[in-house]
Write a protein that binds this DNA or RNA. Structure first.
Lengths: 204, 204, 204, 204
DNA sequence: AATGAATGAGAGTTCATTCAT
DNA sequence: AATGAATGAACTCTCATTCAT
């Protein structure tokens, strides 16, 4: 009742603040952004932010948490057991690479920057996002590749290679690799082929 | 010449300062480190630093520039034309991955963090390090793989894939992926195989 | 009457708030205590406090006023004219010293602290508590000591000396004088003797 | 040499800051005074204060420490063993009471206020000022009063009574007791008599 | 060239108070 | 009458940078 409305109001305000923070962080970075910037952007008073978040860092964590759901969800095909290996790999590449294609690179950059420097954030990212994705990846790869005779160790390393490939591609993109920008849409297919067949494939 | 000695003194002092900065940045990060920290560590006065560097950011650029030579050099086999493809790829993985294995991860983390946030640094890194490496990689791969029938486009993307794989692995390592830590020494071989043959290789 | 009930409700709520304020002030001090602390402790909303008190300082005054009655009453023997000088002096010492012995030192400390700094509070204390006590003290001392030939001036100063002795003892106690803590119960007698006979008494 | 000059400069600046702080604290109190107020008053920048003191509270401690020497010194007659009891007591009253007569009451008020609320300051005052004074008082009183047959316990309590009398008188003065103000100069004599002879003296 | 004291803008955060509900 | 979210002024403290010595 009133309680529910309360919760919704609180959630709405939190989202309003996080939206503003995400925009301003993405534009100027975490440290250069002041609480006042965020408050102005959200159309509220400085102090109001502290009614919803403990401190500036908590805003980053908040952005993070909010993104988590959608990220994890995007990476999880609904029914992985029905997919062949190629589709599986391609999907796990296509989602993150395309997700960031839009306007999310800037925010990802900021998060990455802080993660490099903030152990809490790093641990959070690893435990909440990376590890679950790696685990489910190992599982899926193991199931789908039974016929290919991958050992568990190989499955683990392969999943990490795919994940690293994806992260590395993002870094390249952020760094401003224009060749990559031009071919961005083609990357999932290319990378999928690479992972499945290597470069020597054509000779076999 | 007095002039030459002058230059050497200046260079020596600059290095002294950069050494101190690198150590302290690596330990505490860029923003938390104060000019005073660096000065104390270098055994000089705060003001002296400003006789050699314009501002705090210039210290980061300085560290960067100094590292550039060694990085690029490490990645460039002396006589690439004499190497076969496997060795070539493995070498381009083994150098960076092993280089960071030592005590350089911390500083790399800090640099990466600031790169994500500082356009100048990012451009510097891309133009001075990444692009040359990619170019020479494309060249080497093109030469070495003539017989494999890679198109120039494929060579370009492949080089980027290799680079991304490497960067992504570093990120994984930084994030604290313990599986990776355990297998770190085995990664160059594993990744080289993956790139050459893909995961399907075994069935062919 | 509804009006009467109203007044009682208001008084009750005021007391509820003052009770909470007294507890929290005593524990944490005036400045460190927030309105929210008090509200939480009273089990009401922050805003409600402002329906009953103008501002935070008014809470202190309120505590003060409420304490006044009991303090003054404690210090006023019911029938002073029937008491001899020794009893009179001892009683005026025993009440305040013993009253604070319990759990009131903390609040007294806070009040004293703010009195030193807040002219209103100081004036209030002086006019409402100190002056009446001094006056009645002079009166009592004058009556009781007619036979001892105290001049009015001497009576006035003596009353002030007794009062100062008492206040000073409290300060000593607050400061943490352990010797005093140990002898606290014996102080009224000792001080009464001192005031009556001085230290030279024994030779007379 | 240079080092000595350095130390003198530092000491001078510290004193400059403490002077300013003492003035502004005395006028407005500790909490209402801002660092900026003090800096303005001292004619320096805000930040400079933090080159000499850790934080705002350290300014209070600094004022305190600086006052300590003079206070303790004032209370210590050069050659107590040559003084008779009356002179001894009177001196220990006359110094503090007269010292504060001037313009020091305001600052004493502020210190007292914070002492009531700041345990560190309280302990400092007790250990550095009160305890030494009480000890030397007990010693002096013990020596001087051998012939009066005071037990050690009585000496201890008497010293405390004298100290309390003095502190209490100051409180009375601060509270605005006008009778006391008028008789302030006469208090040392009056109190000395009181302590020596009590009020009953005249009859003996 | 080296020093390091002085600077002062600027940050995050707190909290008494208000007022629409 | 009670609420508690919103407010925003104000504070302490930091630190990159300057510059007289």
């Amino acid at each position: 009742m009133t309680d529910l409305i309360q919760q919704q109001l609180i959630a709405a305000r939190r989202n309003q603040i996080l939206d503003a923070a995400a925009v301003v962080f993405a534009e100027h970075g975490f440290h250069p952004t002041t609480i006042r910037d965020i408050a102005r952007h959200a159309g509220i008073a400085d102090g109001t932010i502290y009614n919803y978040f403990d401190n500036k860092t908590a805003l980053l964590l908040g952005i993070f948490e909010r993104a988590k759901a959608s990220i994890v969800q995007q990476h999880m095909p609904a029914a992985p057991e029905q997919l062949d290996l190629r589709t599986l790999i391609k999907l796990s590449l296509v989602h993150p690479l395309m997700a960031l294609k839009q306007d999310n690179f800037a925010l990802f950059r900021i998060l990455l920057s802080e993660m490099m420097v903030n152990e809490d954030l790093r641990t959070l990212y690893f435990q909440q996002i990376m590890e679950p994705m790696l685990s489910s990846g190992e599982l899926m790869l193991g199931q789908a590749s039974v016929s290919y005779g991958l050992t568990p160790r190989e499955a683990g390393l392969t999943v990490r290679a795919i994940s690293a490939l994806m992260l590395g591609m993002m870094l390249h993109h952020i760094m401003g690799d224009t060749t990559l920008h031009a071919e961005w849409d083609a990357m999932p297919d290319f990378l999928t082929d690479l992972i499945l067949n290597g470069i020597l494939e054509k000779n076999s």
